[in-house]
Amino acid sequence: QRTSALASIKCFLFGCGTPAVKPDTNRIVNGEDARPHSWPWQISLQVKHGSRYHHTCGGTLVGPRWVLTAGHCIWPGDVYRVVLGEHDMSVQEGTEQIRDILRIIVHPAWDIEHVANGNDLALLKLDKSPILNDSVGVACLPAAGEILAHETPCFITGWGNLYSNVTDSSAFRTWQALKPCTIAAHDVCSSSGWWGTTVKSTMVCAGGDVVSGCNGDSGGPLNCLGQDGRWYLQGVTSFVSSLVCNELKKPTVFTRTSAFTEWLSEVN
């Protein structure tokens, strides 16, 4: 009998969103080096080029064998792996765990030709469960339909460049960065002068101006602290402005995970 991804994830929720190393979120003004392994659910999705693997996107461990990332991070024919427990990509820290991907399930309504239609999600089933420890943990998923209030404080994590919309992978940060951001309510983010009708109700906006997601952050988590003291994956990084990452009134747009509970429950 096959168990759905959501059921598998829910079985593990008792231990989700509680990192052994607490994030340092008090003094951050802009993106900077995150406290090592304080976001233990953040993974590096790596694509094979020749005989080597290279970081291409972020992602989030949401269950013992499940990673949630963006649909636009997946291209047919490419070979991927997941690295967990990573912090500084320039060195071997001894905390890394590498897993092959047994199955890739891209949301059936995702269309790379029409990014603004939404549904920018993909689930990756790992070949085997990672060893959960102080460096590797699971994020919590929000309740179905949950909407965060305007200016709710959250954090983006990932290895993407902080400021410029670069495409050269050598310009990615080698260590995980923490970027504070606040939620922009849908009626604000979808208003004229902001993203307008580009932003759908299944999306959530956060950051913009000084702090935003950028290349290499794609697929990574929008981390928001719940009232229960646990960290929740409220969004999966989808897109930023095509001009610059930090354009005023063009916050990072995330796929809102609470809008896709039904899809998660159908994936086996």
Score class of each variant (00 low, 15 high):
96 E>L: 08
161 N>H: 09
174 T>L: 15
32 E>C: 10
65 R>G: 04
148 L>K: 03
58 G>C: 09
119 N>R: 05
127 D>L: 04
89 M>G: 13
51 S>L: 12
115 V>G: 02
87 H>K: 09
95 T>W: 00
110 W>I: 03
93 E>D: 08
130 P>A: 10
142 P>W: 02
71 G>L: 07
141 L>S: 07
42 Q>R: 07
93 E>R: 02
160 G>F: 07
42 Q>V: 04
77 G>N: 06
97 Q>S: 06
39 W>S: 06
41 W>K: 02
93 E>Y: 00
135 S>D: 05
113 E>T: 11
117 N>T: 06
84 L>H: 07
54 H>V: 13
35 R>A: 14
81 R>P: 09
60 T>S: 15
82 V>Y: 00
150 H>E: 13
53 Y>E: 09
176 Q>R: 13
96 E>C: 08
53 Y>V: 09
174 T>R: 15
152 T>H: 05
160 G>N: 06
167 T>H: 13
131 I>S: 10
117 N>K: 13
107 H>K: 11
41 W>G: 06
128 K>S: 07
36 P>S: 05
41 W>M: 05
109 A>F: 03
93 E>W: 00
110 W>H: 14
48 K>I: 01
160 G>D: 05
54 H>W: 09
55 H>Q: 15
113 E>H: 12
132 L>R: 01
132 L>C: 01
31 G>L: 11
130 P>H: 00
37 H>V: 10
